[in-house]
Amino acid sequence: MSVEENFAKNSEFNLSMVPSKFASFMRTCVIWQFIRFVAINLKMIIVVRKSH
C-alpha cells in the first residue's frame, strides 16, 4: 500500500507531506546511509565542540 493513501484517512494527514518511494528507499539504503552516517557524525561533533 502506498503511503499516499494515508492522505485520505483524515484532514490532518491530508495537509501533511509524505516521502516518495525514492526518499523512503534512501532512508535504509546502506551505501547512502553510510555516507549520511559520516556526514551526521561530523555535524554532531561540531555542535558538541561548540557546546563544551
Binding site: R27, Q33, F34, F37, I40
Partner: peptide
C-alpha cells in the same frame, strides 16, 4: 531520519 541515525 534514516538508518544512519539508528547506527548512531
Amino acid at each position: 531520519i534514516g538508518l544512519a541515525g539508528h547506527w548512531i
